[in-house]
Nucleic acid binder design. Structure first.
Lengths: 186, 186
DNA sequence: AACATAACTAAGCATTTGCTTAGTTATAAA
DNA sequence: TTTATAACTAAGCAAATGCTTAGTTATGTT
């Protein structure tokens, strides 16, 4: 038989993910990736096919990292308050040093061309997963009608997307203001 | 004396702006720019110094294009309703064919490296200009205290930023839901 | 008409991009 | 121990990147 891999695919993808998260898709070159991942380009392409493949696996990895706060939300039984906590948890999650990196997925949305269908679909799936968590938490309020739940879920997604962007431009106080007002009348 | 320019700087920048708007900063190459602008690279660099210079002028151009709906907001005397109308106007403004291009400025935020201070400052200035319009419209309600005005302005900015992103992922009904709920209790 | 000068053209610069290929090394089964 | 095979290294590919340079053309002033 043959040699075995000298690296763990999960481990190197995690490093790739952090690069993509920090720099975005286009601004992360294959040279940067091989340096950060600690493997040769050949190995990279053997394991993940191409740069896009590395990115797709990075999204999966990002999703796994997010699992901790997502399952916290999924298990919360306190309705809207649980969602609000998720907003704060997300900010913590995306913090690196003194600056926020935003959400890997929403950061990438603007970079992905309509031709990259596979990536675009992955991004939409990701967004809808979180939206579904919002829906089930909103439904914990028995008085809420289905139509309102759906509208509020859309509204919350908008505020979460906004927060990912806003965290790069506005200060901590303003971010807290945003979250506070978002949940004021839910 | 010398020859005169065979192109109008405003006109060619408008074309550049549309390219940046559609593709983003990095994905717009200087070759694409010279093709779209209809001028040689030499002329481009003579007029705008470098690619970053073209982009900065494009932001100014974008701002001028936005002036129509911004001044409509500035002149509105109906408080929150005027702001809500701005949200709808922005969606119209960013529509091309059947898809939304989002906001040129927020599209770019993720692409700009912290080293591009000049661009980053331009983006922040742009965001705060709109925020100030929100503030003065919010103040048309005499009952609103200053602190609340500021918090609501932050909240509205978050929803506007979100909308720019959301318009690329969610459908028209959902976008309308987002706007509706955003303004439900203001 | 001659000149000075800015606007132009087109070619080319070094660097970087994503990806491949030719050749070497390690490993497990025979 | 031999051998088949996959994992590795490192060099290199064409194409694209932002930007520059050398040389030509047009135009207002003298």
């Amino acid at each position: 038989m043959a040699r075995k891999k000298q690296y763990n695919e999960q481990e190197v993808i995690e490093k790739a993910m952090h690069l993509f998260w920090k720099n975005g898709y286009e601004a992360t070159s294959v040279r940067m990736l091989e340096k950060e991942m600690g493997i040769n380009q050949f190995s990279m392409y053997a394991s993940f096919k191409n740069k896009q493949g590395v990115f797709l696996k990075s999204i999966e990895c990002y999703n796994r990292q997010l699992h901790k706060i997502k399952s916290k939300l999924a298990n919360s039984q306190n309705g809207v308050a649980g969602i609000q906590q998720y907003f704060y948890d997300f900010l913590d999650f995306s913090l690196e040093g003194i600056s926020y990196k935003g959400c890997l997925v929403t950061n990438s949305i603007n970079e992905i061309k309509p031709t990259d269908v596979e990536i675009l679909e992955a991004l939409k799936r990701f967004a809808n997963e979180i939206r579904n968590l919002f829906v089930s938490n909103l439904k914990q309020d028995d008085l809420k009608k289905e139509a309102i739940v759906q509208k509020q879920a859309d509204y919350l997604m908008n505020n979460l997307l906004g927060l990912s962007l806003a965290s790069k431009v506005f200060d901590k106080t303003q971010l807290n203001n945003m979250i506070e007002i978002t949940f004021l009348h839910l």
